[in-house]
Design a protein around this nucleic acid. Structure first.
Length: 268
DNA sequence: CTTGCATGTGCAT
DNA sequence: TGCACCTGCAAGT
């Protein structure tokens, strides 16, 4: 489930078991054999996330840069013989982290890592993030706020779930162009993301439904979320809005499904 | 068991 | 606009 919260959670987990330690690095799949050899037995300094990008710093200016893409995963488990396509494994005698199917997995130096970070907009999960950097671009753009929220150069870490949910929670019309959005609406979106996304890091799952709507079922629901509503609109097309009962709408926007309630979301 | 779709991105056309 | 990447889950047979 790789939106920004997933990568921040992963960075925390990697840090907890590997930071400051010498790590065995291998590429069971074989596609990263040379890089694995360079990293093997090196001391791991720390792991951090910027938007949906993961950086793992090793001794002597070697950084592992990972982007999971849509289908990549990295999971910690007790060491066992690797199964399937493990691109890279970081391991100690107690734990192994297996990386599968990433879109990006490369070794860079500090300036290489910095240049990736420089291309990213502010990340709501990072305490030093400046929402005005995003607002400068949003307020000058004719693209819809729904498209802008997905642009990692505008702000980073938000994906298709947080996009749909934060627009719903703030009652924003998704098709409103950035240059017609009130600054107050943007600040409401940002403030909400700063509250929601760190909660996703803790919970390891996206939950956006407010307490007062938790009991609202409105016609569903076996939506496979382990009991109880956790989201308002994402992938709920055709089902009743948890607030007003209108049918949730969907529309393909630049290859990604957008979900929203046409009745609740009218603000600009 | 098989099939289809997905929380992302970049490149080809 | 379409597809490659190639994992994991849920739903269907």
């Amino acid at each position: 489930m790789p939106e920004g919260h997933t990568l921040h959670r992963l960075a925390l987990d990697l840090d907890a078991v590997f930071a400051g330690r010498r790590v065995t690095v291998s590429s069971p799949q074989g596609r990263m054999t040379d890089s694995a050899a360079l990293l093997d037995r090196r001391r791991l300094v720390d792991a951090s996330a910027h938007g949906k990008h993961l950086f793992v710093e090793f001794d002597r200016d070697l950084w592992l840069h990972v982007h999971l893409g849509l289908i990549g995963t990295m999971r910690l488990a007790e060491p066992a013989p690797p199964r399937g396509q493990v691109r890279l494994r970081l391991a100690t005698s107690e734990v192994a982290a297996d990386l599968r199917g990433p879109q990006v997995c490369e070794l860079v130096d500090e300036s290489g890592a910095a240049s990736v970070m420089a291309r990213l907009g502010p990340d709501p999960i990072r305490p030093d993030a400046d929402p005005d950097l995003a607002w400068r671009r949003i307020s000058r753009s004719g693209r819809s706020i729904a498209a802008l929220l997905m642009d990692q150069a505008v702000l980073s870490g938000v994906g298709n779930v947080y996009r749909a949910e934060v627009l719903f929670r703030n009652r924003i019309q998704p098709h409103r162009p950035g240059n017609q959005l009130r600054r107050r609406s943007w600040l409401a979106i940002w403030t909400d993301l700063v509250e929601l996304m760190p909660r996703g890091v803790v919970d390891r799952v996206i939950k956006t439904v407010r307490t007062e709507h938790l009991g609202v079922v409105l016609g569903d629901d076996h939506e496979g979320n382990g009991g109880g509503a956790q989201i308002y609109v994402y992938r709920r097309q055709g089902r009743p809005c948890r607030v007003c009962g209108s049918r949730i709408r969907t529309e393909l926007v630049a290859g990604r499904n957008l979900f929203w309630c046409g009745n609740c979301q009218r603000r600009g």
